[in-house]
Design a protein around this nucleic acid. Structure first.
Lengths: 180, 180
DNA sequence: ACAAACATGTAACCAGTTACATGATTCA
DNA sequence: TGAATCATGTAACTGGTTACATGTTTGT
C-alpha cells in the first residue's frame, strides 16, 4: 500500500455511504467507526484534496457558503474496492497498561489495581455504546450492509467482555499482593 | 508526558530487569513484550543516548569490542517509577480488518471470510506462544515479578480467545451471505 | 569458510496529531 | 445575543519505521 492509503481507504469508504462534507467524513469515522478507527481533520482535508486531484472524488458546492459535498466517482468506487482487497496494515502494538503491569512490581499492587479498574470501566462504557449501536444497526441499516456492520459490533462486544473478565480476575489477584 | 517518554519508559523498564546492551534491550522488548509493545532499533539507540545524557543510565563497556552495557542509575530507577505512574497514553485505534468488514458488502462475503480466518489463525498462534510464555514465567521468574507477568499473559489469552470465538461466530454468519 | 546472530548508529522518510486561523449557521 | 456546532484548511511538530552502513563474534 502506497502513501497514506489507510486514510484514503477510510475516506473513500465513508463517502461510499453517501456524499458528504469533509467535516462529516471525519464525524462519521469518529462516531460510527470510533471503536476501531480514527482520523483527524488534519488527515481528512488533505486526503480529500488528493483524491479529488486523482479523480476519485468529485466535489460540488454544499448547503452552506464555502462548504463542499464530496461524492465517489466510478474510479473512486473502483479504487475503494482495490484498497479494501489489499492486506490490512497492522500497526505495531503499544498497550501502555500492559507495559506498566508487566513491570508492576516497581509501582505496587495498588497502582496496578487502578490501571486495571480503569481498563474495566472503559470496557464497560464501550459495551454500553455498542449496545446502542447494535440496536440502531438492527433497525436503521440497509439489509445488505447490516450483517457486516453487526460483525464489527460483535467484535467490539467480544473484546470488551474479554477485557472485563480479565480485569475482574486480575483485580482478585492484585488484592492478594502487597500494595507497596 | 514529554518527548518520546513512551520509548524512555520501555527502555528504562527493560533495563530494570538487568543491565544489557541496546541490542538486547530491543530484543527483550520484542520477545517478551512483543504481544503488547514494540520498539525499533532506530528508537532504542537514540533513546539510550538521551537517557545517558540525562544521567538516567550509565553505560560501561560490554563483552565485545564496541558494545556497551547500559545499567539504570538511581535517578533512572526513580524516573522509571515516575513514568510508570503517569497515565498510559492510548494510541488511537486502527484496525484494518474491522474497517474492511464494516464496509464488507463492497467486497463480498468470501473476501471477508479470508480476513476473518486470518485473524483467527493469528489469534491461535498467539495463544500457542502465550502457552509457552506462561510455562516459562511460572518456573523461571522471580516470585515478586511473577504475578504481574502472569497478568499480562492472561490479558493476551483472554483477548486471543475472544478473537477466536468471534471469528468462529462470524465465519458461520459469512457462510450464509452471498460471495459476490 | 561461511552463515547467523550480535552490535551500533544515522538519515530519510512518513504518518499522524495538535494547534492555529477563520468564518457561517443553528438553536436556545 | 451568544454558545454550540458546522465547516475548511495549513503549519509545526513528533513519534516512529525503514533502510543503510558497518563491523564482530559464535557456531556449524
Amino acid at each position: 500500500m502506497s502513501r497514506p492509503a489507510q486514510t484514503d481507504l477510510a475516506v473513500l469508504a465513508a463517502l461510499s455511504i453517501e456524499p458528504m462534507t469533509g467535516y462529516t467524513v471525519r464525524d462519521v469515522i469518529h462516531t460510527r467507526l470510533g471503536s476501531f478507527w480514527s482520523e483527524s481533520f488534519g488527515q481528512v482535508y488533505p486526503a480529500l484534496a488528493r483524491l479529488r486531484a486523482e479523480g476519485l472524488v468529485d466535489s460540488g458546492t454544499g448547503d452552506r457558503t464555502g462548504s463542499s459535498i464530496h461524492r465517489l466517482t466510478d474510479a473512486g468506487r473502483a479504487r475503494l474496492v482495490e484498497l479494501m482487497l489489499e492486506p490490512p496494515v497492522s500497526t505495531r502494538p503499544r498497550n501502555g497498561v500492559l507495559l506498566r503491569l508487566f513491570f508492576g512490581d516497581a509501582i505496587g499492587a495498588d497502582a496496578c489495581r487502578r490501571l486495571v479498574e480503569q481498563t474495566r470501566d472503559r470496557a464497560r462504557a464501550l459495551l454500553a455504546e455498542l449496545e446502542v449501536a447494535r440496536r440502531e444497526t438492527e433497525t436503521g441499516v440497509d439489509e445488505a450492509q447490516r450483517p457486516y456492520r453487526l460483525l464489527t459490533i460483535s467484535a467490539g462486544e467480544h473484546s470488551a467482555r474479554a477485557a472485563i473478565a480479565w480485569a475482574e480476575e486480575s483485580l482478585a489477584v492484585l488484592r492478594t499482593l502487597p500494595s507497596r
